[in-house]
Amino acid sequence: MLTIVTATYNRGYTLSRLFESLMQQADKNFEWVVVDDGSTDDTASLLKSFVSKALFPIKVVEQENSGKHVAINSGVSVSSGQWIYLVDSDDALPEDAVSFFLDILANDIDVGVVGYCFRKQSFSGQIIGSISNGNPTDVMLMTPTEAGNYYKGDLAYIFNRSALVKHTFPVFEGEKFVPELFVWNKISDDGVLKFFGNKVLYLCEYLEDGYSANFSAMLRRNPLGFGLYYKHQIAREKSFIRKLKCSIRYAQCKLFSMNSGRKC
Rank of each mutant, 00 (worst) to 15 (best):
L181G: 02
L181A: 07
L181P: 01
L181T: 10
F182L: 09
F182M: 12
F182Q: 06
W184Y: 12
W184A: 03
W184R: 05
W184N: 06
K186F: 06
I187L: 05
D189G: 02
D189K: 05
D189A: 03
D190A: 04
G191A: 08
L193K: 06
L193C: 06
F195Y: 10
F195G: 01
F196R: 01
F196D: 02
G197S: 10
G197T: 12
G197Q: 01
N198E: 02
N198P: 03
N198H: 07
N198G: 12
V200H: 00
L201F: 07
Y202I: 06
L203F: 12
L203C: 05
E205D: 14
E205F: 02
E205M: 07
E205A: 10
Y206R: 10
L207R: 11
L207Y: 05
E208G: 12
E208T: 12
D209A: 13
D209R: 05
G210P: 05
G210N: 04
G210Q: 04
Y211P: 10
Y211T: 13
Y211G: 04
Y211K: 09
S212C: 05
S212Q: 03
S212I: 12
S212M: 03
A213D: 08
F215R: 14
F215N: 12
S216F: 15
S216M: 11
S216L: 15
A217M: 08
M218L: 15
L219E: 00
R220N: 12
R221H: 15
P223F: 11
P223G: 07
P223W: 05
L224C: 15
L224D: 05
G225M: 06
G225P: 04
F226S: 01
F226E: 02
G227T: 04
G227N: 03
L228S: 02
L228I: 06
Y229N: 04
Y230H: 07
Y230Q: 04
K231Y: 15
K231S: 13
K231L: 15
Q233M: 13
Q233N: 14
I234L: 00
A235I: 11
A235Q: 09
R236M: 13
R236L: 13
R236D: 09
E237Y: 15
E237H: 15
E237I: 13
K238F: 07
K238V: 08
K238R: 07
